[in-house]
Simulated assay, not measured.
Amino acid sequence: MSGFTWHGGRLAEAQALYGGEDWIDLSTGISPIVWPGVETVSVDWRALPEPDGLSALEEAAAAHFGVDPAFVCTLPGSEMGLRLVGRLLDLPGRWLVPSYRTHGEIFASGQPVRDGGEALDAKVALLLANPNNPDGRIIAPPLLRHWLQRLERAGGWLVVDEAYADVVPQCSLAGEVNDARRLVLLRSFGKFFGLAGVRLGFLVGPRAIVAQARRMMGEWPVSAAAIAFGTAAYRNREWMADAIMLLKDRAARLDGVLMGHGLEARGECPLFRLVEVEDGFALFDRLARAAILTRPFEENARWLRIGLPGDERAFERLDRALGHG
């Protein structure tokens, strides 16, 4: 069971353990609505990525985030950016919990905190996710701006993992990024566009930090495919707007299904919900026996995170499996 508690995925492991082939993977926070352009964008696999192509990607991403491209550095996934930030800032860390396990791994020293206010008057880097994982909590931007001001006065930094901010754009602090602020954001491509395998992300921060990150990433930080898909997808504003609305509708549908079985859904991120039950591992097991993979948690055996079903058939199967207990 320990493998399933580390992060989402591991579908092949679940199939080997429980049998069956027609599985529904609800263990991740990856959107089930896949950007359709992936089927039509052509990639030249024979040539190295061109600098102009990388610049075009960063311009498209920056326009979507609402920042100047000079504040954006392309990464092979946002987790790489988090690990870079830990080295670049070279400060003791404080990371808001519960959240990603990897948040505690990026600093040479530090400690978790339950309230960001505990870290505001020290020269530290405070790291949090907004929207958060696994509980979908959103910290309002005015409060984050207050925390940023307090950290800046103490010589610290605020680092916000905005991997899910595309689906709740109003929570982003991108508008605060400039050379005078001690603020770094990490953005993910794959979660919102349903293309986690592309491994594409971005560091957004002051130009001095971006320049250091670019030197560490080197000439070719991502593949030609990541550049091609990312550039085209970020330019597809109409699809993004439609996807946000559709994800909200499906999240409301998921809330209704869970409520119908006496489960109270927690979270404001449309891509997943967290439920608390008497035995999260037992519910995980029951759903797995119905070939539905979800995400249990070693640190809290009462929790189970359930991702967003991709279609009507998946909703119906989840509904039936929850009712057969």
Rank of each mutant, 00 (worst) to 15 (best):
G3A: 07
W6D: 13
H7T: 15
G8I: 06
G9I: 01
R10A: 12
E13H: 09
Q15W: 09
Q15N: 00
A16H: 05
E21M: 02
I24V: 09
S31M: 02
V34D: 00
E39M: 01
V41S: 04
D44R: 02
E50F: 12
D52S: 12
A56R: 13
L57V: 00
A61G: 01
A62L: 03
H64V: 04
F65W: 05
V72H: 00
T74E: 13
G77W: 05
G81N: 09
G81M: 07
L82F: 01
G86E: 06
L89T: 07
D90I: 09
L96Y: 15
S99V: 10
Y100S: 08
G104I: 04
G110V: 00
Q111F: 12
P112C: 08
G117N: 09
G117C: 08
L120G: 07
D121N: 13
D121L: 07
A122Y: 07
A125K: 04
N130K: 03
N133L: 13
P134L: 12
G136H: 05
R137N: 11
I138L: 13
I139C: 07
A140T: 14
L144G: 03
L144Y: 05
R145H: 04
H146L: 13
W147A: 05
R153E: 15
R153A: 07
G156D: 00
L158S: 10
V159A: 01
V159F: 09
D161F: 01
Y164I: 07
V167Q: 11
C171Q: 12
L173N: 02
L173T: 11
G175F: 03
V177W: 10
F189G: 02
G190W: 06
K191C: 06
F192I: 04
F193G: 02
A208S: 14
Q212V: 05
Q212T: 04
M217Y: 05
W220N: 14
A232K: 13
A232Y: 03
A233C: 03
N236K: 10
N236D: 14
N236F: 11
R237C: 10
E238M: 11
M240V: 07
M240C: 09
D242L: 12
A243L: 13
K248F: 15
K248Y: 15
K248A: 15
A251C: 12
L258T: 03
L263A: 06
A265T: 01
A265I: 00
R266K: 10
P270Q: 00
L274A: 10
V277S: 03
E278P: 02
F281P: 08
D285F: 12
R286G: 15
R286M: 12
A288G: 07
R289W: 11
I292G: 06
A314D: 14
D319Y: 15
L322T: 03
